[in-house]
Amino acid sequence: MRPERPPLLFAFLAAIGVAFVVLPLVGLLSRAPWETALSDLGTPEAATALRLSFVVSLAATALALVLGVPLAWVYARVQFRGRDVVRALTTLPMILPPVVGGVALLFAFGRRGLFGPALDAIGIHLPFTTAGAVLAATFVAMPFLVLTVEAGLRSMDRRYEDAARTLGAGRWLVFRRVTLPLIAPSVFAGAVLCWARALGEFGATITFAGNLPGTTQTLPLAVYIALETRPEVAIALSLVLLGLALAILVVMRDRYLRAF
């Protein structure tokens, strides 16, 4: 095939588009204190935030898997009235400004929220706790998993499930031994996207869970706080996030596009 040459205007605008995204990254890299980056990351505040971020984002991904895979299954397989509306609602956090999500979480699970007193009664306190940070991250990140897994379920050949049923497998066994392995690539892709989103979560976390080193101060919060007093630490932490994001995109490559 003859390689196509873009119209001049497209080439021009496309080049600006690339510059627009790449230049800030170049800016970040140009300020990076390469010699001290490692020791900056070793400072207690950076190390604490790194550790907490991994705990929170992995816990959020685990929670999203436990709740999101069955949810995706219901969306893909069960016809019920209002399904589209419910799906739209559960997808909302993906587009909602995270701060709004944080406020909404406060009004639901905060001390004076709708369900706060009930949670309080059974000894569950979410705001200002690591559990709250996990909840905030799950809230914004789960839609990525649900959408990806649902797409996987819809595109898989359901006749394999029929075959398994005729071989004597009940519905749960079919799901575990046939459905899940067949949609494993989608579940993996969804989990990685979800994890990436949870790792970068800022607005809902700071609004709902607050900001306390070691408890709720995840990487993005630490970057924001450190930027004013210790910019070199902030940049070093930013580099970690940038590297992880890049690694994720390389791992996902075309899967990301195929999933949607």
């Binding site: 050949d157 006749r159 394999y160 029929d162 075959a163 398994a164 049923r165 005729t166 071989l167 004597g168 497998a169 009940g170 046939v178 392995p181 067949l182 494993a184």
Partner: peptide
């Protein structure tokens, strides 16, 4: 009687061997 409890063996079109 649900499919998993019927004493029937089915060879499907395209065979549908589990690819994994």
């Amino acid at each position: 009687v649900p499919p998993e409890r019927r004493p029937m063996g089915v060879v499907f079109q395209d065979y549908l061997l589990f690819p994994h």
